[in-house]
Structure formats: structure tokens, C-alpha cells
């Protein structure tokens, strides 16, 4: 009797384990965050080899978290605009934290070594972090590059205030008529509600690890 209960619970545990792994493997984008949710913090390796976390920024009011990568043409198109966001907003309390979550076995150009090169070539003034386990992209619900999350710091919590694109014209910065991220951060800095809290854009899918 005891044995059969043991076997049964062991079998259940095994099934749960299998199902859990199956779910994890097959739904990498899961649900992710919606505007208003509390986002988890993170500590990831920067291109200079040091670990970086939002918690390191004592005086920050929030963060512009950008899921991006080295290889996606859309990330390349937005590279200088991401740099400009950091130049404009880091001193005002909203630094850029860029994160690459792509699986380098699927996309060798997105390895850590290539991140270092990309960051150096682009003279990034912001940290470019490696989400090797893909845990952060999974938790946030990032699906593509670039994919932006504007977070506001409330005491120790990070609240999602905006999710989406940087602006409304990937091809030509000058033709962009709606600068979503700038508008969101400007509103937060002015203690006003963000008018456009989420947008969608075409982008390269995040390259998820195979199960």
C-alpha cells in the first residue's frame, strides 16, 4: 500500500515535471507583462564583463529597457536612436538598459563576443546585457527586437508604464511622427499619465533555445 502511494506520487511528480518543462519549452513568450504590472529586476553580464542590475542605479527614476540584438536589421535601424534615448534621458533619471536574449546557437552573430564588438563599434553609452538563460525575455514577454519596456521605479518596485516600439517609423527616423518612448518618458518625468501605453511593430523574432 505504502509502496503504491509512493509510486503514484512519484509518477505524479514526474508527470508534473514533464508537463512543466513542456510548458516552459513550448511557450517561451508565455503571457509576459502588461502595462501596470510589476516587473522583476535582473542582474546580467554587461559587455565589459561586469554584472549590471537596475538596483545599481540608486538615483534613477526608472529605466528604458530595450530587448535588442546585434543581427536584426530593425535593431540596426534603431541602434542610433537607442543611443540617443540614453544620451537624452540617462541624466534625467531614465537610463537605457539594452538586453540581448537571442540564443547564440541559433544566431551565432548574437554571441556575447559579438555583443562586445557591436557595443564598441556603436560606442554605446549604455549597458548592453546578455540574457543568456532567456529568463528575463521570458518573464517580460518580449517577443522581438527591438522591444521596449519603460519602467518606473516606485521605492524598490519596477512598474511597467509602456511596452512597444521606439517610434512609428523604423525605416526613416526623420519621418517618425510619433516618438512613443520619448513621449512616455517625458510624461513620467512630468508626473503625467502616459498617453500611448503600448504599441506594436514588426521586428525580428527572439531566437529561443530549443527544448
Amino acid at each position: 500500500m505504502k509502496k503504491s502511494i509512493f509510486i503514484r506520487s512519484a509518477a505524479t511528480a514526474f508527470l508534473c515535471f514533464v508537463l512543466f518543462n513542456y510548458t516552459l519549452a513550448n511557450t517561451p513568450k508565455a503571457e509576459g507583462y502588461k502595462v501596470g504590472d510589476q516587473a522583476i529586476s535582473f542582474q546580467l553580464k554587461n559587455v565589459d564583463g561586469k554584472m549590471v542590475s537596475p538596483a545599481d542605479y540608486q538615483s534613477a527614476k526608472g529605466f528604458i529597457v530595450v530587448f535588442t540584438c546585434n543581427t536584426c536589421p530593425y535593431s540596426k535601424l534603431y541602434e542610433s536612436r537607442i543611443e540617443a534615448l540614453n544620451q537624452k534621458y540617462a541624466s534625467k533619471g531614465y537610463p537605457v538598459l539594452a538586453i540581448n536574449s537571442n540564443d547564440m546557437t541559433k544566431q551565432p552573430g548574437d554571441s556575447f563576443e559579438e555583443m562586445v564588438k557591436t557595443s564598441n563599434a556603436g560606442e554605446y553609452s549604455f549597458p548592453y546585457l546578455y540574457d543568456e538563460s532567456q529568463e528575463i525575455a521570458t518573464a517580460y514577454g518580449a517577443t522581438k527586437t527591438p522591444h521596449v519596456y519603460v519602467l518606473e521605479k516606485n521605492k524598490k518596485n519596477l512598474q511597467v508604464k509602456y511596452i512597444g516600439a521606439i517610434d512609428n517609423n523604423a525605416r526613416d527616423e526623420k519621418s517618425a511622427t510619433d516618438k512613443y518612448v520619448e513621449n512616455a518618458v517625458d510624461a513620467l518625468l512630468a508626473n503625467k499619465p502616459v498617453s500611448t501605453t503600448s504599441t506594436k511593430a514588426i521586428g525580428c523574432t527572439i531566437k529561443w533555445k530549443e527544448a
Binding site: 513568450k29 517577443t143 522581438k144 522591444h147 512597444g164 516600439a165 512609428n168 517609423n169 523604423a170 525605416r171 526613416d172 519621418s175 504599441t199 506594436k200 511593430a201 514588426i202 521586428g203 525580428c204 523574432t205 527572439i206
Partner: peptide, 20 residues
């Protein structure tokens, strides 16, 4: 089209914009 946000939801609300 360049203003992606104007049409992605109209193709399907579940689409994040990633391709394929």
C-alpha cells in the same frame, strides 16, 4: 506601410509584430 502600430492589431490582435 511604415506605421506598423496602425495595422498589426487589425491583422490579428494576438500578433506582437514578430515575423514569421
Amino acid at each position: 506601410e511604415t506605421d506598423y502600430n496602425s495595422f498589426i492589431d487589425r491583422i490579428d490582435p494576438s500578433w506582437s509584430g514578430a515575423i514569421p
